[in-house]
């Protein structure tokens, strides 16, 4: 049995990718299961999906804590979520990554096999949209040889109808483009993840455990969602405030769905990077054009 964990953001199709692979495996006579980790998280939120493929029946039903393979649809997640968590020694990491960022992944290569591909570009070339999930399947197949490319024709047809062919082309291109780097194996199996501190990124403090709940399921602590830092959802950019142009009208603050705009000690308007989801509304609505959306320095 091979256990694969997908990491992506809400809306990027991680769950669909896992399901497509499961379907193709089943069509080849294998056993497979695919399921998401549930939550109310929406577009942009880091999400994961799980996939098991086996030659015999699968009785496990739980989340995958120690995968053989991880598939990361969005490279920006590496600094936000411990995507390598539990990845078995010598396991494979299939990463969506533009060529110029490949070097930044190399530290991981000491312990893990890296399969890299610019899946977003493959999707743009073939589908015309930055939907990298089917391309990432191509890279997964190249890396793992799990299932034949052709076995995806049917599942793609069922799922995408007239867009099936374009998705198949995207998958095929990524299959050819993907580069495999075997682990250099010099370093012991301490992962670079241990040097990154994720604790302050997703949650400020541990989330409340169900056993500590009040009777009747009452939540006695007002506003405790503030422990959940939605700043990790930003996909395209962050708002930058230009104080010279700002008249301090306060409109941006009234138009932020997250209440993520405040005034700093100098009374300047500024965004709260812990919570801003990067929707861009403040920048669009500022009457003075005093806010611009600028790229994050991820990875």
């Amino acid at each position: 049995m091979i256990e694969i964990r997908f990491h992506g953001r809400g809306g990027q199709g991680s769950v669909t990718a896992a399901e497509l692979v499961a379907q193709a495996a089943i069509n080849e006579g294998k056993y497979a299961q695919a399921f998401p980790s549930f939550g109310p998280e929406r577009r942009g939120a880091p999400v994961s999906a799980f996939l098991r493929v086996s030659d015999s029946q699968i009785f496990l039903r739980e989340k995958i804590e120690a995968p053989d393979v991880i598939v990361v649809l969005d490279a920006s997640l590496i600094e936000l979520v411990d995507v390598f968590s539990g990845l078995k020694a010598g396991g494979s990491a299939v990463m969506n990554c533009p060529p110029h960022k490949r070097k930044s992944l190399m530290p991981w290569n000491e312990s893990y096999r890296l399969v890299t591909v610019d899946a977003t570009q493959a999707a743009m070339n073939n589908i015309g949209l930055p939907i990298a999930n089917t391309a990432m399947i191509g890279a997964l197949l190249k890396g793992m040889g799990l299932i034949k490319l052709d076995s995806f024709q049917m599942p793609l047809q069922t799922r995408f109808g007239r867009l099936a062919e374009k998705n198949f082309q995207s998958m095929t291109q990524a299959f050819h483009d993907a580069q495999i780097a075997e682990p250099s194996g010099e370093a012991p199996l301490s992962s670079p993840a241990q040097e990154l501190d994720f604790s302050g990124i997703i949650e400020k403090e541990a989330l409340m455990a169900w056993k500590s709940l009040a009777l009747g399921g009452d939540i006695l602590e007002p506003g405790n969602s503030a422990r959940f830092l939605t700043g990790t959802w930003r996909m395209t950019g962050k708002p930058v405030f230009h104080s010279d142009a700002c008249t301090k009208c306060g409109l941006c603050r009234l138009f932020c769905p997250e209440d993520a705009i405040f005034r700093d000690a100098d009374e300047q308007f500024i965004y709260n990077e812990d919570y801003c989801k990067g929707c861009g509304q403040c920048a669009r609505e500022c009457p003075k054009g005093a806010i611009t959306m600028e790229e994050e320095a991820w990875v």
Partner: peptide, 26 residues
């Protein structure tokens, strides 16, 4: 004289740019 009061803390899980949560907040 806008009220400072916020009935909702951040960290909620609405989609980015949700007009419904924004209207609720206001």
């Amino acid at each position: 004289a806008l009220p400072e009061f916020e009935a909702l803390s951040p960290g909620h899980r609405a989609c980015p740019g949700c007009g419904e949560m924004l209207a609720l907040r206001q």
